[in-house]
Design a protein around this nucleic acid. Structure first.
Length: 688
DNA sequence: CTTAGGG
DNA sequence: CCCTAAG
């Protein structure tokens, strides 16, 4: 395994405010983050660098407060940008230069490093969904106060397999230690599972066959690490309270973070744009900039002797969502066919317009991918990049090597009872699906995307005598195919499919609360205009001034992969509803509120029953989740409801007077339609 | 894309 | 709510 020469911290995620533990439920959902490090040196220093880099990003972001959505937060810190200024008496000062082009900004972090005996804070070994990996939350949104980082490593058979970095803060406002979250959960899980590190690592990894396939560990000496470092973070104007933790893993180790409860998932939803529930969530530091940039990438691993295909070293993030994704209509246009189709066929979608990081490039030998997606990626990229080797020709050829790509974040939904084998297949399918045309390759030179495909390499600044360090490739969703909205329905929704018997606890998304919210909004907008407006909070552009931007940069793919094919090793029955997930996710059921019904009746009374698009525009223009088909259907059921006895009706009772209006309007318009038809028939007859 | 209807 | 034939 070739070690990367640089630190690619990929420290790109912010976790949402931690929610009071009391409200956490037992069930879990995983939020994922990954931290990738160049291995051999993930020590306190690296940690500091990471933190420093993060802080820098924060700083850069917050300085842009006027337009939070433009905040940049890709979180890739190159080693070159990390300077270890001094080291004396355990005091280390780390400076991280801005990763922004042309920026001279830098962040400094000093730390006191003190060795400590290994602390088995361990790793979460078990997950609800897929028992692979560990994961973490990254939540550093604050500069004030003290950040304590504890990194714990474990040396077992798997030498230096993992390190857990726990960050905590005692900033005012949080009072209690912030080591909570991951670290705590980990601890709890361990307790619950009676696992010790050794077991955890050995057992888990091995059992999951992560060792060979997914994790790809090398046999490094047990140069293990364990040190606790206290990082003194320079106070910052911003007084956000940091809280969180993250796990650092070796380069080749996948990290999947698991959140042990529903709400966190809600909070974590990176793609969520729907603030509905979010607003209700406890706000712990609202001003904090929330960034969620979990991303996924896989890189082409160096060619090994034999085609150990699994060595393709695909990294992915597993997100523990019940419902991966819900289709979304575009603002005005109710139609969403394309996306739907896409989703149905491939069960895969990804956000668009998100930044994809350049993974790497070099002038060294061309690395060959193995089989599978990685290989395909390699090949694809190679072809795109054009010439790569053989420079014997007269022309100046640019030799470049693409070591890896970072691809859009990939979410995979798979039952925890699925086997590792099926997981692998799922990931492979997802990857292949993406590669099968859903991705574009982008070229980045000196940090700038090169959009003009007609330019020559020379014109672009890619020449053989040029520093190709400035060249990078990206994989990005193919806009033509990837139509998914950048603001899928709120996670809470997503995770509570109609079939789900247990709604999330943290985010009230049950009918009552839903209605409440709607109601408030409805009334507000109805009064004055008389129109049924803005019944959908999706339309609210200001999702705490952050999500939008964040989402925009985020590139993710969401995949609902059903655990097809039975794995011989399967020991548990697959999830029952697994089959269904193959198709597009069914939209969440959203019962019409009385207000909506009234608006509908009003509109139909005015427009009639044959102009649903107009009805939609007139009364539900802002309710993006109501399509004209929905309205038509609702009318249908309303008519039916009005005709049956009150005892047979279900759901939120609709005022009788409204139902009466439904009947009369229905009668009136059907009569009109009949007349129309008669008229038309007469016309045609006359013409003939 | 819209409608209209059945499922 | 979904799916689709039709227009």
């Amino acid at each position: 395994m070739v070690l990367q020469k640089r630190l690619d911290y990929g420290f790109n995620g912010y976790q949402v405010p931690v929610i009071p533990r009391a409200s956490r439920s037992a069930r879990g959902r995983s939020s994922v983050f990954r931290k990738k490090v160049d291995d051999n040196s993930m020590c306190a220093f690296d940690l500091l660098a990471t933190v420093a880099g993060k802080l820098l990003q924060e700083k850069e972001s917050s300085s842009d407060s006027t337009n939070a959505s433009a905040v940049k937060c890709d979180g890739v810190i190159l080693k070159e940008n990390v300077k270890q200024e001094q080291q004396e008496d355990g005091l280390i000062v780390v400076k991280v230069e801005s990763h922004e082009q042309g920026s001279s900004d830098e962040t400094t972090v000093a730390a006191q490093i003190e060795s400590q005996a290994y602390k088995y804070n361990a790793l979460p070994a078990v997950h609800n969904e897929v028992g692979v990996g560990v994961s973490s939350n990254v939540d550093i949104a604050n500069y004030g106060g003290r950040v304590v980082c504890t990194e714990t490593a474990n040396v077992n058979n798997m030498n230096e397999l993992v390190k857990v970095v726990k960050m905590e803060t005692d900033s005012p406002g949080y009072g209690e230690s912030c080591e909570s979250d991951v670290a705590n959960r980990i601890g709890r899980q361990l307790e619950a599972k009676s696992l010790d590190i050794g077991k955890l690592v050995n057992g888990t990894a091995r059992d999951m066959s992560i060792t060979d396939d997914l994790m790809e560990l090398d046999d490094k000496p047990p140069a293990l690490i364990s040190s606790d470092s206290s990082i003194e973070v320079p106070p910052c104007s911003d007084s956000h309270i940091p809280r969180g933790s993250f796990l650092a893993m070796r380069d080749d180790v996948k990290v999947v973070c698991r959140d042990d409860d529903e709400n966190s998932s809600g909070c974590t939803q990176p793609s969520s744009k729907d603030t509905r529930y979010f607003r209700q969530a406890p706000r712990i530091g609202d001003r904090r900039i929330r960034k969620l940039l979990a991303y996924k990438y896989w890189k082409v691993a160096p060619k090994l002797k034999d085609a150990e295909r699994s060595r393709a070293d695909m990294k992915f993030i597993l997100q523990n969502r019940r419902n991966g994704f819900t289709r979304q209509r575009s603002q005005r246009n109710p139609s969403f066919k394309r996306r739907k189709v896409f989703g149905q066929r491939t069960g895969l979608t990804y956000g668009r317009g998100m930044s994809n990081e350049i993974i790497s490039k070099s002038l060294e030998k061309v690395v060959d991918g193995d089989t599978g997606g990685a290989g395909a990626a390699s090949r694809a990229s190679s072809s795109v990049s054009g010439q790569k080797t053989s420079s014997q020709s007269r022309d100046s050829h640019v030799k470049l090597c693409i070591k890896s790509f970072r691809v859009p974040e990939l979410f995979i939904e798979i039952p925890e009872t699925a086997t590792v084998g099926s997981l692998k297949r799922s990931v492979m399918e997802a990857v292949n699906a993406i590669l099968g045309g859903g991705l574009h390759v982008g070229v980045v030179v000196k940090g700038n995307k090169v959009r003009d495909d007609t330019k020559t390499l020379l014109q672009t600044g890619i020449s053989h005598n040029e520093e190709l360090d400035n060249l990078g490739f990206t994989l990005e969703p193919n806009p033509a195919i990837a139509q998914p909205s950048m603001h899928p329905d709120h996670p809470a929704r997503l995770m509570m499919p109609a079939e789900s018997p247990q709604p999330l606890t943290r985010y009230p998304n049950t009918p009552p609360s839903d209605a409440d919210i709607y109601g408030a909004s409805l009334y507000r907008h109805m009064t004055g205009t008389g129109n049924f407006m803005d019944s959908d909070h999706d339309s609210v552009p200001s999702l705490s001034d952050t999500s939008a931007g964040r989402i925009t940069e985020d590139s993710r793919a969401l995949v609902a992969v059903p655990p097809l094919s039975m794995d011989p090793l399967a020991m548990f029955p697959l999830h029952r509803k697994s089959r269904r997930s193959e198709l597009a996710q069914r939209r969440i059921r959203r019962p019409f509120s009385v207000n909506e019904v009234e608006a509908l009746v009003l509109a139909v009374e005015k427009l009639g029953t044959g102009r649903w698009r107009d009805v939609k525009i007139r009364a539900f223009d802002n309710a993006k989740h109501r399509t004209y088909v929905d309205l038509k259907d609702k009318w249908k059921t309303l008519v039916h409801t009005a005709r049956i006895s009150p005892q047979q009706r279900r759901g939120e009772p609709v005022p009788q007077d409204l139902l009466d209006r439904v009947l009369s309007a229905h009668a009136h318009w059907t009569q009109q339609q009949a007349k129309q038809q008669v008229r038309q028939q007469n016309e045609t007859c006359l013409l003939l």
